[in-house]
Nucleic acid binder design. Structure first.
Lengths: 220, 220
DNA sequence: CTGATATATGAATCTACATTCATTTAGGAA
DNA sequence: TTCCTAAATGAATGTAGATTCATATATCAG
């Protein structure tokens, strides 16, 4: 029944490291996490304060430290949690199709859909993710995995003969990621006012065909 | 001879607002600015301290406030200064060519070249530019102008018939910006270890032709 | 109901810097 | 050489805000 089943029950001194209150369930944990993301999205990570987050979550400042090691830890947990969730979704949607073309399509649809579904997440990802220095590891994981998925699709497409074979591999991956990322960025900057998902088809088309006109591209 | 020619010479109280020491010329101003950018690039803006910057620049902490209103102001000045400089370069290089295709090529070459030339700037731009809230205006200015240049090129290319006419205009612009941006990002993340400029040609090729194979794209 | 443990609280603490300013130093006019 | 003003200095100041912790409250077993 006590929270730490495997330890002697030294009443105090166990580090607030891994032990999180269990009585109140995951409920409060997520309440705080969501509140934090909302605040981060509005103020930016560095300008956000624990007090703001606490108020937003409807708890006391101190309570936050029952669930998170530090302010940084909140952001970290967020990235871990969301990255996993989102990447899962991507993979699932990609596997929904079989040919490379449809898979790329699905990936991008999924990507835009997920970000549109959770604007706060989108803002925080766009704003704090590609930055780095101290979070880099975690976020790089998201980027790495994403690039991996794209890479697989590209390779498959080349085998299928629907994608060009003369591609600078690591460049193409960045090319795809960069385009999608910037489309999301634009949407975020615009305050999420329009349908992000509606960009998916035109974007896929651009990725596949490029901006050159048929005729101009004909000569080689 | 006094620094404020147009004001009564109240000895003290003039706000350190616009007046910058002139004796020591622009020299020290730029020394501090460059030091700051170096530190920002290494530590990230929020983790950088005035003391670090001062040490790097070889001046006293207080001296910085003779040249800048605040820490934020340093970043601001940097963006203003560099944006102008860089956009100028872009325009010049774009105008070096006459047809849209070459102009796009020049823009991207120029872009990668300039960022490669000044890695600290590149890092700070990539890291702090997309954040926002309080710098947004300035940075948006860079983005806006850049998108403008791209837009002009696209339009010209459509008239010339070398670019497709069925393009979602604002999307294409983001598409171009996003790709280039992410290529720079990758380079920055890799620690600037390779020739960034060498990505220009392959990237332009991707933008123009896309990743779809000729045959696959044939059927409309 | 009673005690015991788990949670929650928020005021008090502590620290890291940004910013200021009394003093010192440098430059140059007379 | 002597003054006077511009520049530079860096220790002292002030503050915001993260983190802690002594208390208070809720939960639950018996």
């Amino acid at each position: 029944m006590p929270q730490n089943l495997d330890k002697k029950d030294k009443p105090q001194k166990d580090k607030p490291d891994k032990d999180i209150p269990v009585k109140g369930k995951k409920d409060k944990y997520h309440r705080i996490l969501n509140a934090a993301i909302k605040v981060f999205a509005e103020e930016g990570f560095f300008h956000s304060t624990i007090s703001q987050i606490a108020k937003e979550a409807g708890v006391a400042d101190g309570t936050i430290y029952l669930y998170f090691k530090s302010k940084d830890d909140i952001l970290l947990q967020f990235f871990n949690f969301k990255s996993a969730r989102v990447l899962d979704r991507f993979r699932k949607d990609v596997n929904e199709a079989n040919d490379a073309g449809s898979r790329l399509e699905n990936l991008i649809h999924s990507h835009l859909r997920e970000f549109q579904k959770d604007p706060n997440m989108a803002v925080v990802f766009q704003a704090e993710a590609r930055k780095g220095r101290y979070l880099e590891n975690r976020v790089n994981n998201l980027t790495k995995t994403y690039l991996g998925i794209v890479g697989e699709i590209i390779e498959q497409g080349q085998v299928e003969g629907v994608f060009r074979k003369d591609l600078y591999f690591s460049l193409v991956k960045r090319f795809v990621l960069g385009s999608v990322d910037e489309v999301i960025n634009a949407w975020v900057n615009a305050g999420g006012k329009y349908e992000l998902s509606s960009m998916a088809d035109p974007l896929v088309d651009l990725l596949l065909r490029g901006i050159g006109s048929r005729s101009a591209m004909a000569g080689q």
